[in-house]
Structures are given as structure tokens and as C-alpha cells.
Design a protein around this nucleic acid. Structure first.
Lengths: 338, 338
DNA sequence: ATGAAAGCGCTAACAA
DNA sequence: TTGTTAGCGCTTTCAT
């Protein structure tokens, strides 16, 4: 078993300095690739570092410089692949630059997000990445007084605190609604998860309904559950909706997880798609391409959004002024389910 | 635009002390819920904290106490839902205890994992969570000399550095091989991603082949690609395998992403499952339950593993000695694809 | 119950 | 090119 007791004092920069026969400051300079160090000294120091297995203490460094190189990344969920991909994009960029992501998961709960923000402030992150433009008043206040760059991602319908990298969820919903109307659908339903929590899904639905209205249509039926969206929920939701409203000719889903679940219901129950029923989702998940009939959906640039969010933070920290708002748009994918 | 210049010096514990008319030490005691503080003083301090909007600096605290409450979590991938779920389990537990996860992504590359470990040491994490029992010699060395608890997750086939929470991938593969043999399959193929990188998938395949051998069978055909596993790769892989070996009567996939892709190929191409072909996967993803024919697979307790890993670290830090190795097993799901 | 002093390990600023 | 000094913001220890 690993011994926890007897904390051997860790090796410090002073230890390295002593062994190399120089001052601590010189060691610090070598480690920071400072120019004003002679080759000879540099070599001596590097040898001492290697000999002792010295690992710099970033806590101490960050305390002195007041720069942590810690980036707070707060996502609503890790239960489907969407936010992990945002995180992956951000992390790839941050890691390459010597920054470290610290994560928080809000469960689509703005109160919880607020608590996470409050707690994370204590680490003095060099930057913040958050999902969405909606936050509690106190969360907004905290982020406004924070002196580090803040990027809100995955949405562009609203005012950012500082910077935003995303796309219009409302417009995505509109585009889908218009598309279904254009392709002759008239009896349209909706299947979604808990919209009070996923505010971006709510915006898509709102945009969707607007587009229907502009075409003289309205949502005939809707299934929403107080649960997180999922394949099984989409499947069960569509089954239930069709039972009550067998005459629907199109269904819009809150996202692809739900839509793929819906498609699976149709395949299992022999509901002809798109002949009898059209299905449309959102996100552009890979599974939507792998199903026998490619799903009609919208691909959100999730990975790219994460990457750009990180890049914008780094640019700002480097003294540049990247665009405050970036609307990356999205790709409408006309599949075989419409 | 946000002002970056003129760094207003941040509010410190001394500022709070001054306003409350006490010493810094007393403020510190109040913030740590120390017992020896009078109610009156406590109230004064709390009022000052609120008035100034004081946020303690954990960098400074951690530097003094040599306890960061930072937990390094290094996962191989964020490209499918498996490790995000491990991370979710760990984070839920850590967050509740006031710990903070800092993440790294190794891309299934042990060299990269080593670099991440090397870099993360500088933050002096209070604990480490890593995937798998295989690491580079230098990574092993670094983790052995680290004085904080280390938990290796998602595997139990091998020797852990410190603690391990997982299951036997080899046995999972064996069970699947035995099951296919028991159900009369004789011409068995394999479809997987890059096995040099995903070592746990490689163990499953090895166990699978062992079980076949024990039943007088061997793998008739195999498709492996130098890419990450995915739905589309599974679909294309199975298509290719069946083209070359149309007489296969069962295929084992490296995981459920691949297997669901394979099933989609069968549904699209009219390959009768399980009549003509049996399919088996691994992980127990939700999508495997939502497809028209429930996938035969093994559910790995991913969320629970993340949770337990975190709990064990916390227990160790609290002075307890939790079990060094925990084999959580798994659930074999007999679906409708076999 | 409260405070003073010292120091965690590092780097910025200045001096030599 | 190198070293000295001071201090980042906190907590530990010891005193009162």
C-alpha cells in the first residue's frame, strides 16, 4: 500500500539552484527559457533539474504572476456526445498552449451553474468557457467582474457577457420548420426532452413554430418529458405521440439522440419514413449518418466551437482583440428521413 | 470590450480582516468553519466578506497546506460517450466534496499520456484517475513517486500502480466468444478499430479468440482500421468483411459504436439478423437498446467506475484504506442480434 | 478566542 | 549574465 504519511518535503527550485551552484532566480530563468542565461549555466541547471527530478510548482508560480493558465469549462451535460466534443476542441487547443482545462457540469441547471462559477472563481482561472447566453443574475454579475476573458458557446441568440462563439438555435429551428413546410408536410408534431432546462432546444422549438406559423401551420402535437433527452426517450416519445396522433406527417425532435430513437421506432413498428412520416433532428451526430436512412438534421460545429472558444481566450490573453461574437452557422443536412 | 489592463489588486483576506476589525487569521478561521471563533466575530467577518465580495484564493491556500484538492483525470478519448460517463461519475463525487477535476485527453496514445502526466504534476494534484493499467515506463515511474492516490480505471487485467477500479476486458471477450459458440455459431469474424491504441479492446479480442479456440473454433476473418472506432466505421467494416467472407455467421465488434454501425449495415442491406448473422458488441450503450433489435452486448459500469474511483481517492485522502483493486464485473445483455 | 510571525515556492523588479 | 530582495495570499504554529 502507498504510504501517505511522512511527507518528504518536495524538491524546490532552491534545491536545484544549490546543486547547480547558482541562484534560484537563474534556475527560474532557465526553466522559463529566458534569453539572458549563458549556455554553460543553462546546461548545469538542466543537469541539476534532471538529477533531482525537479517538477516546478505551478501553484507557487501562478500565485506570484497572478496568471494561472487554468481555463474553467462549464458544460451542461456529459450525457451525450455534444459537449464532450466541445470540450475536446477546447482542450486540444488549450493543452497545446500549456493551459489546463478545469471542468464543471451544470446538469442544465442554471442555479447549479452559478454555484460552480462561484466555487471556481477561487482558482482564479485565466479564462472561462460556458454554454449558452442565459445565466442567473448572480452568475452574470460574477462573470462580469471577473477580469479574465469569458466565452459563451453554442448559441448566438442574445447578448454575450464578453465573447460568444456559436450559431443561432432559433434560426436552426426556423430552417427546419420551413423545410418541412416546403416539402409539403402539414401535420407536424414535436418530440423533446425537458425544455425548461435545455434552453437552446427551447429556442429551436420556438423558431420551428415560428416557421410553421409563417406557413399557416401549427404544431399539432407535442411530446415532452421531464427527462434528459436520449435514444430511448425519443423512441418511446414518438411511439406515444403517434398513438395519440396517427395522422401526423412530420415530427421534429429536440436533437439527434431523440430523432434516431424515433427513427428506430419507425423501423421497428413499420412506419414508413419518409413516405408516411418525415423525421428531422438537430446536431448532426455521426449515428444519424450510419442509420439505414440518413437522418435529416443540422450539423452544429461543436468541435470547432470549442476550439475557437479556446483560441479566442488565448488571443485575448496575448493582448489581441478577437471578434466579440462569432456566428459559425451550421450545415443543413437533407437526409432520407424527409 | 473587456478591459484587460490596470489589474485592480484583488481583494484579500487582509482586506476583509481590516473591514471586520480583526486579524487575517480570524478571517481564515471563520472561512474554514473553525470552532474557536465567537458568534459575534463570525458574524462581523461574514458581513465583511459579503460586503467586499471576497473570494478566497485557493492557489495561496493550496500552496500553504500542500493540498490542492485538484484531481487529475486523464482519459483516452472524448469522442464517444464512454469516457465522458466515467468523467461524469468522477466529477459528481469530486464536486460534491469540494474537489476540482482537471482533465487530460491522451487520444489512446501512451506517449501523449506520459506528457500529460508530466505536465500535470506541476499542479500537485491531490489524486489521479487514469484509464487502463498500461503506461509507459516513465509514466509508471512518475506515478509511483507521486505522493497522492492513483486509481486506474476500466480494467482489471494486470497490476495497478496503486488502486484499480474496473472489470476484466479479457473475460468480457471470453464470455462473448463462449456465448457465440454456445449458440451454435461456427464461422466467426471480428470488426474493430485500431487495436494498437485501444489496449482494452485488444484484451477483449484476445479473450474472445481464446474462447473460440477452447471450442475448436478460430476467427475466420477480421477487419481492423487505423481509425478511431465509430458507427460509420462499424458499418463500412462489416460491409467490407461480408463482401469478402459472405459465409460468416457471427461478428464480434470492438465496441457498441462499431456494432450498432454493423447492425445498421445489415438493416440497410437486408442481411438477416440473427438468422443469417449474429452480432455482438461491448459497452452497453443506450443506442444498443433503442435499435429495433436490441444489441447483444456487455454493459460496462462506466459511471459507477468513475464514481468509485473518486470515492476511493477521497477515502484515501481522509486516511482510510479502501480496497486496492475492485473488479466490478459487468452485465451480459442477451439481445436480439444473437 | 484571537493575534503575530514565519514561510509555502515561486517570479518581478531592481541591483551589480 | 547573475544575484538579492520582496512579496503573491494564505495557513501553521505558537503565543497571549
Amino acid at each position: 500500500m502507498k504510504e501517505q504519511s511522512e511527507q518528504t518535503p518536495s524538491i524546490t527550485l532552491e534545491d536545484v539552484a544549490r546543486l547547480a551552484g547558482v541562484s534560484g532566480m537563474t534556475v527560474s530563468r532557465v526553466l522559463q527559457d529566458h534569453v539572458n542565461v549563458s549556455e554553460q549555466t543553462r546546461a548545469k541547471v538542466q543537469a541539476a533539474v534532471a538529477a533531482l527530478g525537479y517538477v516546478p510548482n505551478r501553484l507557487a508560480g501562478a500565485l506570484t504572476t497572478a496568471k494561472t493558465r487554468l481555463i474553467a469549462v462549464i458544460v451542461p451535460s456529459l450525457s451525450n456526445i455534444v459537449f464532450p466534443e466541445v470540450l475536446r476542441g477546447a482542450n486540444e487547443c488549450l493543452e497545446a498552449a500549456g493551459y489546463q482545462a478545469v471542468i464543471g457540469v451544470s446538469d442544465y441547471d442554471l442555479e447549479k451553474e452559478e454555484r460552480i462559477i462561484a466555487a471556481m472563481r477561487a482558482w482564479r482561472p485565466s479564462g472561462w468557457i460556458l454554454a449558452g447566453l442565459e445565466h442567473t443574475p448572480r452568475a452574470l454579475q460574477m462573470l462580469r467582474v471577473v477580469r479574465s476573458p469569458v466565452v459563451e458557446v453554442m448559441d448566438s441568440d442574445g447578448e454575450p457577457i464578453d465573447m460568444a462563439v456559436g450559431f443561432s438555435n432559433t434560426q436552426a429551428g426556423r430552417d427546419t420548420g420551413q423545410f418541412l413546410a416546403d416539402t409539403g408536410r402539414r401535420r407536424v408534431g414535436y418530440v423533446g426532452g425537458d425544455l425548461c432546462r435545455d434552453l437552446r432546444a427551447a429556442k429551436r422549438r420556438k423558431g420551428f413554430e415560428q416557421a410553421l406559423a409563417e406557413n399557416g401551420l401549427e404544431l399539432e402535437a407535442s411530446f415532452t418529458a421531464q427527462q434528459a433527452s436520449s435514444f430511448l426517450l425519443g423512441r418511446a416519445g414518438l411511439a406515444q405521440l403517434l398513438e395519440r396522433h396517427p395522422d401526423l406527417d412530420a415530427v421534429y425532435f429536440s436533437n439527434d439522440d431523440m430523432a434516431v430513437g424515433g427513427l428506430m421506432h419507425c423501423m421497428g413498428a413499420g412506419v414508413e419514413v419518409p413516405g408516411r412520416l418525415a423525421l428531422a433532428g438537430f446536431n448532426g451526430l455521426e449515428i444519424g449518418e450510419a442509420v439505414p436512412q440518413r437522418l435529416t438534421t443540422i450539423r452544429s460545429p461543436r468541435y470547432r466551437i470549442g476550439q475557437l472558444a479556446a483560441e479566442h481566450i488565448l488571443a485575448r490573453l496575448a493582448g489581441n482583440a478577437p471578434p466579440l461574437r462569432l456566428d459559425l452557422g451550421y450545415e443543413f443536412i437533407t437526409g432520407q428521413t424527409t
